[in-house]
Write a protein that binds this DNA or RNA. Structure first.
Lengths: 220, 220
DNA sequence: ATTTCGAAACTTGTATACAAGATTGGGTTT
DNA sequence: AAACCCAATCTTGTATACAAGTTTCGAAAT
């Protein structure tokens, strides 16, 4: 099946992978030939991608894969760190006993991240598990709705993160911080949470790593 | 001019006003006759409204004005209260001196809210100024981006708020709280902010006012 | 009276022709 | 050689015909 949803996912992934690099022109007619679909439904798909920030539409001129906007990345990181430190504190200070399933589910994810670190070439899998961990926290706190809301504006942050995480030594740090966060919840320690979450999400936004190595993908 | 943007705004407003009540069917053909525009661009508009939560699309069956989803309202209120208490604390604890313009702009808004309370029939104006005040806080803290992001998911919260604020005695309380928030910032008092913001945004979500008086507009 | 069936009349979804703005490139003018 | 202009050819935007589900409603069968 070559349904609209599949094509949308496919284009989204190609942009996230950088198979479609920032600046690439996405012409409706070219895409309609590629996917054997007429322009009308393809326009719907492009509208959606534009709404999520994956492409930029120049009226009557064309559609271009958007350049990574570090300003947007910083705003999303602020949003996420603010929200996550709040909801993690909510979990840790919750009166009723914590659900065993919640803890086990997150521990399972962390084990699989551990396994990824051993393997070569498990970067993509590690990042996917990273998302699952954070999504799990949102859902555990009853805030899955807000996770989904943030995902709708993730085109810049997600590409930033993938490039940023190419620095391999970071993976171990991330995993360790995940363990710390989870232990804060289970052991009801509120006090370290703010610093922990801020360090986990905000630490590296200021490093010049991206500007030095991937300037051609960045919005000027 | 009957551009697409105008029609979008118009439909959005009619839904927010409850001129178009939850459950109303929005047929593409009917709308295309009303606005003298063909179905293709109208579909774009409906897609946008659907994305923002104003309408619900039943595939191959039709488009219906969405019922107010109190769950979505609660989630947005949690998001806003969490974010706003953080960014207001950021403003209040900022090292550099506060910009005079920022303070004056917000004070001007509060004066106009004061004026609205005197008049009859200035409900709509009061609510608009309420938005301007909160938007002003976001922008002052350098977070206008996040304000706009939240606005994209405001279909339920905005209708909730308009109905909720019909309780007239609330307006004075709101204005007083706005003044308190602003004074916390200018006088650098961090400590009361959390409670103040939570009270301001979350206080009334639990009251049964809407369920009793406007059950026919609510999602079941 | 009740159920069942099916055609007609709806709905949105897709393909395609045409409109109209934007760009490009070559030939003319200066 | 440089500037200009206009036509050809891109692009997206719009209108419309047609496809394909869904519902409705009445007639026929039980």
């Amino acid at each position: 099946m070559n349904g609209k949803a599949d094509i949308l996912h496919r284009l989204r992934n190609e942009i996230l992978n950088l198979e479609l690099k920032p600046g690439t022109i996405l012409s409706e007619t070219v895409l309609s030939e590629r996917f054997q679909l007429s322009r009308t439904p393809l326009r719907d798909i492009l509208k959606q991608l534009a709404h999520e920030g994956y492409i930029h539409v120049y009226p009557k001129r064309g559609n271009v894969v958007s350049y990574i906007d570090l300003e947007s990345v910083e705003q999303i990181i602020y949003l996420r760190s603010t929200l996550e430190k709040e909801l993690i504190k909510n979990l840790a200070s919750q009166q009723s006993p914590l659900s065993i399933q919640g803890v086990m589910k997150l521990n399972e994810i962390l084990s699989r991240q551990e396994a990824c670190i051993q393997q070569e070439d498990a970067h993509a899998a590690f990042l996917q598990l990273d998302d699952q961990f954070h999504k799990g926290l949102f859902e555990w706190a009853g805030r899955g709705f807000l996770w989904e809301l943030i995902q709708q504006s993730n085109a810049h942050y997600e590409r930033y993160r993938r490039l940023h995480m190419l620095q391999k030594e970071k993976l171990k740090v991330i995993l360790a911080e995940h363990r710390s966060i989870l232990s804060c919840i289970t052991e009801r320690r509120i006090e370290p949470i703010d610093e922990l979450v801020i360090h986990h999400l905000r630490e590296d936004i200021h490093t010049p790593y991206l500007r030095e190595n991937f300037a051609e993908y960045l919005k000027t």
